[in-house]
Design a protein around this nucleic acid. Sequence first.
DNA 1: GCGTGGGAGACATGT
DNA 2: TCTCCCACGC
Length: 736
Amino acid sequence: MSQGLPSSLEDMLTGLNEKQREAVTAAPGPILVWAGPGSGKTRVLTYRVAYLIAAHDVPPWRILAVTFTNKAAREMRERLENLLGVKASGLTVGTFHAFCARMLRQEPAYHPFTERFVIADAEDQRRLVKQAMEDLRISDTFYPVRQVHAAISRAKNAGQWPDDFPENDLRNRTIKQVYRRYQELLLASRALDFDDLLLWAVRLLEEHPGLRRKYSERYQHILVDEFQDTNALQYHLVKLLAQEHRNIFVVGDMDQSIYRWRGADYRNLERFQRDFPEARIIPLEENYRSTQYILDAAMGVIRPLHKKPKRLYTRRGQGRKVVVKRVRDTYQEATFVVETILEMVRTGQAQLGDFAIMYRTNAQSRVMEDRFLEYRIPYRLVGAQRFYGRREVKDLLAYLRLLYNPADESSLLRIINVPPRGIGMKTLAALRTQAQRMGLSAGELLLDLAAHPETYASTFNRRVFNVLKHFADQLASWQAAMTRLSPLDLLDRILHDIEYKTFLRETSRHPEEAETRWENVMELRRLVAEYPPSALEQFLEDVALMSDQDTLEEGDAPTLLTLHAAKGLEFPVVFIVGLVEGLLPHARSTEDIEALDEERRLFYVGITRAKDRLFLVVPETRWSFGTYEPLNPSRFLKDLPPEAVSGDLEKLFPHLKKKKKRRRAAAKGASSTSPGESTRPAPRYREGMRVRHARWGLGTVVSVEEAGGDQILMVAFDTGTTKPLLASMAPLEIVG
DNA sequence: GCGTGGGAGACATGT
DNA sequence: TCTCCCACGC
């Protein structure tokens, strides 16, 4: 079989270990690669594609590879081009969302959005949910927009359309109405939200057998990375496409499942084995990334989630022990980080680009950034929101989006009076009313007004007509220019016409602020400049689907990022900061066992990013809402094997040794909650008891599992949901 | 119509 | 500590 392989591919195969080679060269068919951290799964995935092309003569355009980020997609494509040359072109590589967006644009006949739809960002989505609630006269006092939106998104990710949404209680009936209205508003704007991309793609394939045939014939080989973080819809999509030819290669690791809250379901790994029973399962166990002490720490942390101990081994040697460092507060934490970095750089142990600082919440980056600035150390901050969330950037993107899709109401509302052009509430209301009357969007009406002003002279009063006409003429002229200008030239034209620089100067408090905002505009210009003429659509889509990791650029500076954003990356030296109760595990995750387990896996993911050195930092207090708040060290630290750790671990848990035995006996999830530390003595629950939960209301205990002095309860709430709860942690009381 | 200033609420994690 | 929203005055 490997006869006639390019020599680069031969070399590559000899560089793999036995299991990796087995995965790469396995005969086509369903394959599940069980890949621990640092086991070379990215390589395996890339080589697998190369192997299909080179050894099985699969044309690249018959291959679909789904990656977790666009960055990963880009890297895979580049590597393949290096391995195979031009042969790799035609390959489809991208995220689920990008793939679905592309499919929907290619099949406008099968959905009502036409090919020129926009993708609603998080802000648009909230705005539309709010609008939907206003339309329905639903007060946000009882139905906070965030929560309603979350419920809708959850439903979508489970594959539910408004018709499928439950109506078992008043709350759900209300949300169902909002969901329905929200979809109408999206459609009127010719916009899809992130979840819709998947939802509609699945619907198309389900409802149109011809389409399903077309796509499953086209993509006869499908590969999916980070399979444990796929959600129900994504799994469904894969299944629809792969059912026929069954050449489906998935790579995943349950222990790195950290997106349950976003609808991901690691049980897709089990579903996969059920739907493709003939699947070959190949475990990749050897770790090439970390030294053994780091792996020992990782194993200790993940241990409570497994019946049998998890084995992670490396040939890299013991390495240096994991350092646990206790500091007074978050400022000292930042100081410790920067000073350690400087010291390690000074002594030649590492370069600036080798470091990563990971935290649970984005808010934690601030203190760290301040310290980096103070010490004049450059840093790279991972986070798409950081740049694309800026007002000036969003405003300019809204201009481009509106020109691309005049129905995009969110964008129009955003910029219709930015900079101020005399269009206030009154004028806007008149515009929208008239648009509604004519069955147009406000943007479409404006373009029509520019084309036939005389038709509108009697519709609006003189003042309103004049201000609208002025803006409409601008829109129309940009739109006419759009077809021949590159995205950059179009942007420049807009910047010039609206005198944006002047506007920034006039609305900024200090000259420096105007300067910074203008620099952001220049940065946007730089990004736009990479797109050729007629690629505005691609630019807008790339921006909309940009992931945090996609913003990470090469550079010789430490990287600041959340633990979530760290997935799939590796760094020689890793600091994980804020290892305290309330942050990791996060306060909002402590009452639900599954959420708690996910926090543990998140810590595990962070630990396993480190190649050579790992520092775990524990502040004793933090400044929060005006006072110093005392903090307790994260319960997960108790599961670190003391032999692999140096530093302050024993100071944090003076009684650690005594409790060790009990912890061992404890079951999954409850392992490290020592009874002495819970906030209050847990009452004893029994099956059949009626209980009240602070959030979910009344319910009945349906099962009780004793676990290391604590109890794991399954509670069936009257709302219809059943939740696992930890007796000592859940805000639960016995009633009646 | 528009700018300003004060008060309230917010910080999970992100496509 | 920052952002959003509303009320008020010009």
